[in-house]
Amino acid sequence: MSMKLLVIEDNEALLQNILSFFTKEGIRCETAKSLYEAEDKLLGYAYDCILLDIMLPDGNGLSIFQRIKELSPRPNVLIISAKDSLNDKLEGLDLGADDYLPKPFHLAELHARVKALYRRSKLGGQESLRFNEILIEYEKLTVTVHGKPIELTKKEFDLLVFFVTNKNRVLGKQVIAQHLWGDYTDDLANFDFVYQHIKNLRKKICAAGGKDYLCTVYGLGYKFDENAL
């Protein structure tokens, strides 16, 4: 799938992080560092998804929604904001944002969310994701290995999608915990729940004859490795 992304963000370092991550994933990225620049870009090109920071040097990012609404086809909007305020979140979602991710976020999480948005809106959730012998069908929430269906819990399904979306990348325990249990679970991430789920997932895939793609990377986390033995 070829996706085009506009990142509206004024922090140069963060912008570079996002840019290099998505470029590596084969997603085309353009950037705007101010509202003015963003409006310019929106007038000239069509995007599938917009990442929008709220605090911009020349105003509040929410004000750009007016322009986004007029666009056809309308791009998905994901708000990324450090302004840790409930109001911004509610206002943003009210105005028509599709998702909200508070800073600091994990790039893998951002990636998963952008992909999910794209899947839901552009592909009507119809798409399936294939990774060698593993086939994930989003709509039916089923996974088959070598054509054989395997029983996964909701969490294990999420985990597998997260891993396949971010394949060949090291995912820290925190990233995975946050993806599975949401924002508040920060404090609980030190538990080895992540390990439990990964152990179960690995067992189920192997039992169905799949390769063991999941490997640990030193103490850092886990990786869904295409080239695993």
Binding site: N11, A13, N17, A82, K103, P104
Partner: peptide, 15 residues
Amino acid sequence: QTPAAVVRGKLEHLM
């Protein structure tokens, strides 16, 4: 939080 996000991103790259 913004610099923390940058640090997190860089570290994830590094990983």
